[in-house]
Design a protein around this nucleic acid. Structure first.
Length: 111
DNA sequence: ATACTGACACGGG
DNA sequence: CCCCGTGCCAGTA
């Protein structure tokens, strides 16, 4: 699954959103797949799932509060700073060769 | 095969 | 700010 590969490419000290990863994986809009992929095989895969956050940098995982806190700890340990309950996307969002959300959807209209 | 669910995103109220 | 509906893909009953 490309999702795993994409997540593994997230550099340390950076984070990416589910939607962003879905796009990089070639499935724009399929943000749910990313979450599904993680929860499905995260514990048995060397995937830095903690670097994946919801839109706006907010930690999603609500089913297991333990994990949400753990994710935050791991991120902070890598140097990622938070602003309230969210990651400072303005500084720590992984741009992966893409541009900021300013002109993102243009790549979708490739033809 | 269909129906429901799920670590989501985005627009509208 | 919160809540609701819809689109998306894959897995499970």
């Amino acid at each position: 699954m490309k999702v795993y590969g994409t997540v593994r490419r997230i550099p340390m000290g950076k984070v990416a959103t589910y939607g962003q990863i879905a796009r990089l994986a070639g499935k724009p809009g399929a943000a749910r797949m990313v979450g599904w992929a993680m929860s499905s095989s995260s514990p048995r895969n060397p995937v830095p799932w903690h670097r994946v956050v919801g839109a706006g940098g907010r930690i999603i995982i609500s089913k297991a509060l333990t994990y949400s806190e753990m994710q935050r700890q791991l991120l902070q340990r890598e140097g990622v700073q938070f602003r309230g309950d969210r990651v400072r996307m303005d500084e720590f969002q992984w741009k992966a060769g893409l541009e900021p959300k300013s002109s993102r959807k243009k790549k979708l209209s490739k033809r």
